[in-house]
Amino acid sequence: MLQDKDIVNDYLNGLNSSLKSYADYIAQANNAQLRQTLINLRNGDEARQRALYSYASQKGFYKPAMPATQQDVQQVKSELTSGQ
């Protein structure tokens, strides 16, 4: 029998996978109505993912990575802006 932790983690993995796919679909959508529909679906999945992440974190099902240091943040900013 599946435990709550397994169900939550499986659903989170599914949502994360669909969110990655939406980016491709939205970028390639030529029809404005289809593009907006995909954006709306993605936004709904993002909200569900955030709520489920909060639930999993509160229950101890999910342990997030350590927060980035200010130095890490600056390094990423520098790397992203130097390519522009």
Rank of each mutant, 00 (worst) to 15 (best):
D45Q: 13
R42G: 08
T81C: 00
A23R: 12
R50A: 15
A65Y: 10
L12F: 05
L19I: 10
T37D: 11
G83A: 07
I7G: 03
P67W: 06
Q58C: 03
A47N: 14
Q3H: 09
D10H: 07
D4S: 11
F61R: 06
Q75I: 05
D6T: 11
R42M: 11
K5E: 15
A27F: 05
Q3S: 14
F61M: 11
L80R: 10
L41I: 12
N30Q: 13
N9H: 05
M66W: 06
I26H: 03
R35C: 00
S78F: 10
D72E: 07
K20I: 09
E79Y: 10
D24K: 11
G83E: 11
Y25W: 14
R48L: 12
V8P: 01
D4K: 13
M66I: 08
K59I: 02
T37C: 01
P67K: 07
V73K: 02
L80C: 02
N16T: 04
T37Q: 12
A47T: 15
A68C: 02
Q36C: 00
V73D: 00
A47V: 12
N13W: 06
Q70K: 15
M66P: 13
A56M: 04
N43Y: 01
D6Q: 15
Q58W: 06
S78Y: 12
Y25N: 09
Y55R: 10
Y53L: 13
E79K: 13
K20S: 10
Y11D: 05
Y11K: 14
E79R: 12
Q70V: 12
A23W: 03
K5L: 05
T81R: 00
A65G: 09
D45V: 03
Y25R: 14
A68Y: 08
G83V: 09
Y53R: 15
